[in-house]
Design a protein around this nucleic acid. Sequence first.
DNA 1: CTCACGTAAGTAAACGTTTACCTAGATGGT
DNA 2: ACCATCTAGGTAAACGTTTACTTACGTGAG
Lengths: 367, 367
Amino acid sequence: MDGATLFLGNAIHASRMAICRQGAGDRLLFVDMRGNVAITIKDIARQAGVSAATVSKVLNRKDQFISEETREKIWSLARERNYTPNSIARSLVTRSSRVIGIIVPDILNAYFTELVRACDVAARERGYSTILCNSDSDPEKEAAHLTFLASHGVDGIVMAASDLIPDAGLLERLRIPLISMDREIPELDCLAARIDTDYETGAFLSASHLIGAGHKRIAFVSGNPLASNTKIRRAGYERAHREAGLPIDPDLIECGAFNHRFGLMATRTLLDRTSFSAMCCMSDMLAMGATVALRERGLGVPEDCAVMGFDNIYIAPLLVRPLSTVERRISEAGQLAVDALIDFLDDPTQPRRMVLMEPTVILRETT
Amino acid sequence: MDGATLFLGNAIHASRMAICRQGAGDRLLFVDMRGNVAITIKDIARQAGVSAATVSKVLNRKDQFISEETREKIWSLARERNYTPNSIARSLVTRSSRVIGIIVPDILNAYFTELVRACDVAARERGYSTILCNSDSDPEKEAAHLTFLASHGVDGIVMAASDLIPDAGLLERLRIPLISMDREIPELDCLAARIDTDYETGAFLSASHLIGAGHKRIAFVSGNPLASNTKIRRAGYERAHREAGLPIDPDLIECGAFNHRFGLMATRTLLDRTSFSAMCCMSDMLAMGATVALRERGLGVPEDCAVMGFDNIYIAPLLVRPLSTVERRISEAGQLAVDALIDFLDDPTQPRRMVLMEPTVILRETT
DNA sequence: CTCACGTAAGTAAACGTTTACCTAGATGGT
DNA sequence: ACCATCTAGGTAAACGTTTACTTACGTGAG
């Protein structure tokens, strides 16, 4: 067949309309109902005069027993006709999609933006792609996303911290290799790794730095009070006080969420309720919200009130007053997570990894 | 069959190992090689004593001619066994995945974070999911993502501005319904809609505001100088000058990228080269970078140099000096894009939409 | 010459759905 | 009694791959 031939598509279901459309280069192409040109392995096979199996073998480089001639014919045909494998069909038979799902509570929180980005980069490096899901810290959405990802055949899932403890029953049932980041998680067969941050130390360092600078009344603002990642941080904050012989005043504590909106509101509440000279915010977004509230009341940072953040998101040093914060090496965590997942996929018998990342304090201008 | 029976899976390929694993609730479950419990429509059918077709009809609510009894049996079985349809198999036969792809240049740019979020929300509202891809403004990555998305059978794609004009040949070939946001794009059959921002007016408003405030030397910082979305902005900036009878000094212009890093570098360069009392930054990220550079040199904002942003990302009002900027209604744009796409998917014959969003100026404290 | 083996393919089943079309029984009208 | 129609559901092909197994044809050794 030469280059100007009419290529028939596969025999198609009688009910499905076929359209022959004049393509570029004066060629007739087979086009399906939605107007998509469909080049399949069978088309290549027919044109090359071989079977579909042979084409598949060549294209997947399992061509040990294929002659050089056939091999080249298939490759050049595939290139010429811009053959793109149908990943859906491939996934169906191989039961592997080379896609990993990522669930985060809030992509608008720059911490998660960075994390997602890092995961994506790490995944692509190893030939995987990612699908992103936002849970909004809503258990129902989280469960729905989990089911969605399972239904779409992802090979593994990275679940990043949210306030909620995931539905163990669901996870157990899905049996999809899972990486848990910074959250409490039940013991699960499919748990490939945990990447956690030593929040206790992080909060301790943050509060200790403030105490060391002479502050005696330090507000504490964090996420959902019921969630472990808040409780643990609070423990660090309290230990810093105990070790310095300072009392802990519950009036100084406001927990709710990690976003800037809560930071703003919590700070207003705190300001109305009591007095303090420093704030220990358990996320940078919280610290940004807090700073806005402080300014509203005419309070300067750090002159009237010092502010510590947590996470060291990329925006932190870009603020007009670069934010002092607790560094978490977000990208490294994301990369670690995805690498652990893919390693587990490659060899599920290997030991589960448990990583505890140690945070450090970065002093900039808000303290 | 009662609840404690051994459920055999489908007859499986002889070579594929089957493992019978003791599940929760003292039940033996059929488990595949990767350890995943596989409940298929056939399992439900066998248990209900009907054909797979009947199960499919019921579960898809095409059950006009199915008895109430059968229907209930199938539903309760499906619920009880936590049947989750295999979207991959479904997509293969229906040729529709109810997934849309989103390509952005840089998810770390808060503008795109918000856009992606809005698209995701809009898509989910209409029963679609999204897959996110980062192009890093790299034509090769963009092409690779396009191919990836096509290969994964997305129903449509939202492509957000990057500096590059997309590969028309590739797009033409893929024939996937496309929404183009804020970028030059060739006339394409599959172009479902364009959602653009009136950059010319936006930049004009930004510069005019600064001129109105008495500034005479206003720096202009924007993205890739070859890209239309920079050229058009520059035209607006220049028009504002012309209309005010002000000269345009090329020394005041630095174009490269829209991220904060370039904002920082460009401002340093400008500061070394010439003098000015205001900056017209064509993205908020650029403005944030510019502010940092200004501070470095001991210049206060807005006392020594006024700064205008562009986009009104959610962080803009959270800065210690809330940023004056040009508002773009990011979420609305995202929603518009996805709605246009899905409407097109529902009815491809409808007229293509062309939306030009009008920006407005928001004055805060940096000017 | 036979047999074993290596090479270059081809065959067909399988993945889990959806769906056009078929069937068989029941009902009802003439 | 016969035919048409409705109801409830079954059959089998199709989607585009991958892959275990088979085949057919050398070729060299014994």
